[in-house]
């Protein structure tokens, strides 16, 4: 949408919001309409100037800000300009649809029915012409997290988070490659880099830890409640490591690698392959990362990490024919 059309929609919405709620503080209007205080005041100025020529000097929108910072409007003079909000545009409907679908596929999996209901109700509130347009083309933008925790895990974690209830997890930790059982106190569910995490106080480690939800093998409510601390925003992802590994990727992956790593950590080799320095905290994690490229990535350094990859491969899949075992 062009800026002028968008501003028009905002002005109209401001009038519609005042119709709905009566006089409002400038700050409240600003927060409801995602505008700054200055933008609200400028919008009020604009609206005062909406009038149809010299023969209607009073203007269509009788609006003003009083000395206490309340925006007041006398309804009824505007010929219905702002009695109701404008219908959703195609872009607005698409945006809502993408957001609701993403939430229903993720943290709100248990509310998938409500998510469908929301979209149906919004569709019904549009005029028939608009409804036809949005129905045909609503699913055009999608947001997907990389990982899909199993439905029962999502449901249990979310319910326990809301109730403030301890939950027992079976968790496959990427740092140790072990499945452990622990009781945790859920603090927050958050997404980062496309992965969903549960941040919880972990009884096993005696500390706050992030758990990647697609590695939770099972989740069971315990029935034990705890008092939640005040909400604060955390960095939900795993902390970056302090050791560095050098990994060589073959030429087919060179472009892909360059897009994902800072240039100062990437070195081009004569045969078209690239070497990347990757920070890591856990040798087990980075060994898994390297083998997940199915032979197109090899650890160059450090030597103990090379040994780790080889040792884990042979332990997991057995010594291949012709391999003389550990050197």
């Amino acid at each position: 949408m062009t800026p002028a059309a968008r501003e028009l929609a905002r002005l109209q919405l401001l009038v519609a919001t005042l119709y709905r709620h009566g006089a409002m503080r400038v700050e409240d209007l600003a927060s409801r309409l995602s505008m700054t205080r200055g933008e609200v005041l400028a919008a009020v100025d604009r609206l005062q100037l909406v009038h149809g020529g010299d023969d209607s000097p009073a203007g269509y929108v009788d609006i003003d800000v009083d000395a206490t910072g309340m925006v007041e409007m006398t309804p009824g003079l505007d010929q219905g300009l702002g009695r109701r909000p404008l219908p959703l545009t195609q872009g607005e409907y698409t945006a809502l649809c993408a957001a609701v679908r993403a939430a229903a596929a993720g943290p709100l999996a248990a509310l998938a029915t409500e998510a469908d209901a929301v979209l149906a109700r919004l569709e019904q509130a549009q005029s028939p012409a608009v409804r036809d347009r949005v129905r045909r083309h609503r699913e055009r933008v999608a947001i997907g997290a990389d990982n899909r925790p199993a439905d029962p895990v999502w449901r249990t974690v979310r319910a326990c988070l809301e109730r403030g209830e301890e939950v027992e997890l079976e968790y496959l930790a990427a740092s140790s490659d072990e499945v452990t059982r622990r009781t945790v106190r859920p603090i927050e569910v958050g997404g980062r880099n496309g992965f969903w995490y549960l941040v919880a106080w972990c009884g096993l480690r005696g500390a706050e830890r992030p758990f990647r939800l697609d590695r939770v093998v099972s989740a069971r409510p315990t029935g034990r409640r705890f008092a939640r601390g005040p909400a604060r925003t955390r960095d939900v992802g795993a902390p970056p490591g302090s050791r560095m590994a050098t990994v060589r990727f073959d030429r087919d992956l060179a472009g892909w690698v360059r897009e994902r790593h800072p240039p100062e950590r990437v070195r081009d080799l004569a045969d078209g392959s690239v070497e990347v320095r990757v920070p890591f905290a856990s040798a087990v994690w980075i060994a898994g990362f390297v083998v997940s490229h199915a032979g197109r990535a090899v650890v160059v350094d450090p030597p103990d990490l090379r040994d780790e990859v080889r040792r884990r491969l042979l332990a997991a899949f057995g010594a291949p024919e012709g391999d003389g075992g550990t050197p």
């Binding site: 519609a16 119709y19 995602s34």
Partner: peptide, 28 residues
Amino acid sequence: AAASLAGGIDDFPLREDLRLALAKVQAA
């Protein structure tokens, strides 16, 4: 919750549309 999820994505291409849509729905 859905709007807050999409709002948390850098460069979400329909960010402005989403904001307006939410405000419209709230007014309706």
